[in-house]
Structure formats: C-alpha cells, structure tokens
Design a binder for these strands. Structure first.
Lengths: 204, 204
DNA sequence: AGATATCTGTACTTAGCGGTAAATAACCCC
DNA sequence: GGGGTTATTTACCGCTAAGTACAGATATCT
C-alpha cells in the first residue's frame, strides 16, 4: 500500500514515481529539518517542478507529514518490531541495538527525523512540530504499555515503574539521535546501548 | 565581563542594554532555532531596529554565536560546576539532577539551545550547526577527561571505559533536552536521572 | 560653541520564499 | 481521430527574508 493517493487510469500519466520522490523528500527534510528545507531543495532532489509537487502532495507541510509516515513505515524501522519481542528486556535490547545500528547508518542521514525534523522551529512549522512531538510521546506510551504487560507477564518485577522505565528508554533513544548527529558510529552507540541495559531491571 | 564589546565613551550612547538585548535574542533562538528565527522576530523581542542590531552584534550568525556564549556562561548553567565535584559519581549526579531541574524550568524555553538551536538546518546555518556540534562534543570530552582523572583518583574502577561512560552520560543529557521539549516535567526528568545513575559504576 | 563620533529610525535593496495561473503535452475512451 | 482528463512547463504572484544607505539625533572632546 502506497502512503500517497493512487494514480487514476485516465489522463496524462505521471512522469515520476511518487514513492521514489517521497523518499527523496524525506532525505532532504531529514538532513535540513522543516524550516531549513526550501521548495527548491525539494524539487531539485525530487527531480520535479513545483506544480507537480503541489498536485501530488498538497503543499510543503503535507509533504513533510507524508514523508514522516513513510519514515515510520520503512522496512528498516526498528521501533515497532522491537515491541513484539517476548520479554521487556528483549524489547529494550532490540530497540537500543536497532537504534545504534540505524541512526548512524551512512546509507541515509544520521539521527532520527522525528527528533530533529522540527525540534525548535518557526511558527509556520508549529503543526509539524506538534505532529513530531505527538509521535515521540506516542512511542513512549507504547513502550509503557508494553512494560505494563511485561509486569503482568512476570518478566518485569511488579514494583517496576513502567512509565519511568519507558521514559528512560525514550530518553536514551532520543539522545542517541543527537549522538548520531554528533558523528558517533554505530559501534559507539552500541556501547551506549549496552550500558543503558545495565540500568534495566532483569526478570524477577 | 560582558560577552559583547564594550561601549565607547564618545558619540551618541546606546539607547538599549546590550546584555539584556542578548538575553532576549537567546530566548528567541532557543524557542525557534536558528533557521526558524527571523530578524523581525529578533528586533521585536530585543526592542531595537535592525541597524542597531547589526551595529551591536554584526549579523544574525554572530548574534547567535554570542547568544550561545551567554547561554553557557549564565549563572544557572550546571555543566561546568558539576565537573568540579569530588567524585565521578557526584559529577554525574549533579549533572543529571541539574539538567532535570534546568531543562524543564518554565522560566525559560525548555530543553537546551546547544542541542536544539541548529540540529537539522539549511546550508546557511552550517556554521552555527558546526559550532553547536563542537560544543556538544567538547562537553563530552571534558566529561571523559574528568572520568579518566576519577580512575586515577580511585573513585572509578580502573577497568572503566571513560569514553563510553562519558558518551552514555552525554546521551542521556541530550535525550533529556528532547524530553523537556516533549513536555516532561522536572520531576519526571529527575526520575530518569535516578535511573541513569543505576547504570553508573560506583566507587570500587 | 563647534567638530567629531556614534547611535537611531525610516526607507530601501536584492534575493529567495511558498504557492499558483495558464498554456501545452500525453494519455484513455469512444 | 476527437473529446475529456490529467500532468508538465514556464512564467509569474505577493510576501518576507537578510542586510544597508542615509539623514537626523545625541553624546564627548577641544
């Protein structure tokens, strides 16, 4: 299923692939942030003209939001798959090592576009800033719910504060995004992940 | 000592206080980031006109860099004072609790301007992005040096990897900046700090 | 007081921004 | 092949961006 609308069969066909163009847009937003990205940056990277961009994606804001959707649904995404692991510890483990691998991967910009796409921004970017903020908070809520379940499953002590544990993990993951921006390698991030797991409550 | 140049005695005197204006500029940059801040935002907040801004601070870029200098030299800054604590554990403790207190403080924008001022940005902001990146990396190097010293002092096990420990602490601190942006309270950040310290090697 | 030096306010420049109108080109269906 | 529909191209819109020229205002120095 494509993230964007499907092409109709009548009329002149698109000369570009919508999903490929969206990938390019994501790459630019990821590197430059919402405010730092101009429409010229986008059209150049996407290989299309402005009217094509507007016809296919609405406007800059909607293009950004669609790029974020794509980002989160990509096969190399690690967050949701990690939630499926059988124990809380393994969830944390896979999430941290996945982040270490992914965020410093040279195949794409470093860090996490959900963190750095519109952290501090103009009023014009208020909508996308809030959208990203919601995604971050929702991610932590999912983590928390997963840890609550783990308490019921017995693979976390009943005394565990699931909310704080989720926030701690979220903090480290978001910090790793900054570290990747700082130029940290996957191996260096892996060591941070290892250390983080030392503060993680084991099955009890 | 003022962060900016001193006023000459001859000629018409300035009608505004340079340091107060710089505080206002810092506040705007902190909330909106470098790319998200316009000169109109700045002059409005600072209560001066553009020619006065340019005469006093050079240009937008130099104004930003001076605002960062001010940010780091402010009395409520917690990083450097924490480095002076007698043991590695106390250094980490003061830094984490200081960050928890400071980053969610409602008296100023949330988070840390060194983290969020120009994380992802346009090419026009490349200089300030690099300046902030250098500050983050230098901060971690100072932490690392402090932990190396702690190993000599015997308050960290000789087997400790000071570099990784510094990076772990830096990761959590930077993550806390994002958390503060997410709306986390000082109390919530304090709990994260507490948890972080559990992974911290005790005197051995 | 006059000369000199600096600051202030208004008005301006140039360039780029996000977004769009209108003409043309390429496709499907009949 | 013609009509209907959609995409592409080019050129443009109004607006705001960062930065500045210049004239007038206000201080010190002699």
């Amino acid at each position: 299923m494509s993230v964007v609308s499907c092409t109709p069969s009548i009329g002149r066909p698109r000369a570009f692939d919508v999903d490929t163009a969206l990938e390019k847009a994501l790459d630019v937003f990821w590197r430059k942030g919402y405010d730092g990205t101009s429409l010229s940056d986008l059209t150049e990277a996407m290989g299309i003209n402005k009217p094509s961009l507007y016809a296919a994606f609405g406007n800059k804001e909607q293009l950004f939001l669609k790029a974020i959707e794509l980002y989160e649904s990509r096969p190399c995404s690690f967050f949701l798959p990690a939630l499926e692991k059988p124990t809380a510890y393994q969830v944390a483990e896979h999430m941290l090592y996945g982040a270490a691998m992914n965020m410093a991967d040279q195949a794409h910009p470093q860090g996490c576009v959900v963190v750095q796409g519109a952290l501090s921004c103009s009023e014009a970017a208020a909508t996308v800033k809030e959208a990203l903020l919601n995604r971050r908070v929702e991610g932590e809520q999912k983590l928390r719910a997963r840890f609550e379940q783990a308490k019921l499953d017995g693979d976390l002590p009943a005394s565990t504060d699931a909310e704080t544990l989720a926030r701690y993990l979220g903090t480290v993951l978001q910090g790793m995004a900054i570290q990747a921006n700082n130029g940290a390698t996957s191996e260096q991030l892996r060591q941070v992940a290892e250390m983080t797991l030392q503060a993680f409550p084991r099955a009890g």
